[in-house]
């Protein structure tokens, strides 16, 4: 999965032609590790881009998007944030959310 930072966010997320799922995560967050393999699967199974933002390394980006609980997953379509999912949720819930915007 592509790692995004404050410099690449605009290009890779906001300017993306495809739907983008952004995973705001932190290195010592247990639930972030749980959701990792699910996101890998989703990246392969769906026509969308899945990227990760390390909130410890990109605090301004995390603060700008109002991140509190980690992991927080955000969906961006045509440069707009369209949905947010908080916490390690089952794959079915993520798929349901993604399908609304594909």
């Amino acid at each position: 999965m592509l790692h995004i930072d404050e410099l690449t966010f605009e290009n890779e997320v906001l300017q993306s032609e495809k739907l983008v799922l952004v995973d705001f995560w932190a290195p010592w967050c247990g639930p972030c590790r749980m959701i990792g393999p699910i996101l890998e699967e989703i990246a392969k199974e769906f026509n969308l881009k899945v990227v990760q933002v390390n909130t410890d390394e990109n605090p301004n980006l995390a603060t700008f998007y109002g991140i509190r609980s980690i992991p927080t997953l955000m969906l961006f379509k045509k440069g707009q944030r369209v949905d947010t999912v908080i916490g390690a949720v089952p794959k079915s819930i993520l798929i349901h959310t993604i399908n609304k915007y594909l």
């Binding site: 705001f24 932190a26 290195p27 010592w28 967050c29 247990g30 972030c32 991140i67 609980s69 980690i70």
Partner: peptide, 25 residues
Amino acid sequence: ITLTVIEGLARHKDEYGAPLCPCRH
């Protein structure tokens, strides 16, 4: 998962003096 969180708590304790939750920004 448990040990990851414990490691995060320990790092916050070392760096900031208290085991701040590692699952928040």
